[in-house]
Amino acid sequence: MTRDEIRATVLRILGEIAPEADLTQLKPDVSFRDQLDIDSMDFLNFVIALDEELDVRIPESDYPKLSTLDACVEFLSSRNTAKEGS
């Protein structure tokens, strides 16, 4: 999966969690939890959706690496690359 595809997947999941949000205004380098008012239940649902759609296991200790859109894409791309290389 390319970085663009990962970014599109992340945005789609965020759109399902925060349907009222205008994701075109999302700043990619600022915490999306703050921008979209994502609470702990929303964030758990976000991680569950990433796990299901990208087949990437994300331990709680890696949650800080999912703080911004850019960070998410970076982290998920690296996990995806590692998986494909194994």
Binding site: S40, M41, V47, I48, D51, R57, P59, E60
Partner: peptide, 17 residues
Amino acid sequence: LAEENLKRPVVDRLLFG
């Protein structure tokens, strides 16, 4: 909680609340 969630698949993880 941290120890429990480490053992669990994401769908079964617990929230602090």
